[in-house]
Write a protein that binds this DNA or RNA. Structure first.
Lengths: 122, 122
DNA sequence: CCGTATCCCCTCCGATACTG
DNA sequence: CAGTATCGGAGGGGATACGG
């Protein structure tokens, strides 16, 4: 215990990380950007299920946190590309670990959910 | 597409992981349980800021996903302990990586946030 | 093509009070 | 001490339509 905060409780930096990724799309968007610059519309197609509004919101937040860089080109058909900043790229590793976990244990979770007839209480 | 899904887009298992942790408290609660069995009240004190109701909600969900085990003792002053299941313990590693990231890059994020007077657009 | 505004639902989460 | 019920606020996020 003590205040070591090996694992974040209270106001440790870990809380910041949670606040960053604790929503439906942030991690997915970051993953979508992990391979290189992508256009807005491409991301919508790539991710699937996210609305343009929410995608923009998510990107804006990531941009303001220094994780994503926005590049707009003044062309005839407007073109905007988003890419990870060096800082943003450092988040890919933790996300990758999470993905690995899901690939390995995802079935077990789904199994627990379906095998869950417990409903204590009575 | 195929099912390559090196990084989760669409319905890859990674999405499951996101849905699991994409809320304000899940990761924090898991972290709080990482050191061993803990009582309900202890968790409230330990975490700080979470209400008993929300803690219970979170624990219930984790229980139904097979990540947490609940142990109730029929004693004079009721005592209930929660602990990670073996499956739940496997999630500590990814969380730890995330914590490490925060410890290392948290300042950079906070810096970006404060250095962010941009407000493009007007 | 990119972005924003509006409307609306729905879930998360906190505060309080009450039962076992 | 543990848990539930209830209320209520706040905000995320989807659908749509419109502007640059």
């Amino acid at each position: 215990m003590s205040g070591s905060c090996d694992f974040f409780l209270a106001d440790c930096p870990g809380r910041l990380a949670v606040e960053l990724i604790a929503d439906k799309w942030t991690v997915v968007v970051l993953a979508g950007l992990s391979a290189g610059p992508v256009r807005h519309g491409e991301l919508v197609e790539l991710i699937g299920g996210i609305s343009r509004k929410v995608l923009t919101q998510t990107l804006r937040r990531l941009e303001s946190h220094g994780l994503v860089r926005r590049q707009a080109y003044a062309e005839a058909p407007p073109r905007v590309e988003y890419e990870l900043t060096p800082l943003g790229a450092t988040l890919i590793e933790p996300i990758h670990v999470l993905t690995e976990w899901a690939r390995e244990h995802g079935d077990a979770v789904l199994d627990a959910v379906s095998t869950q007839p417990v409903a204590r209480h009575g």
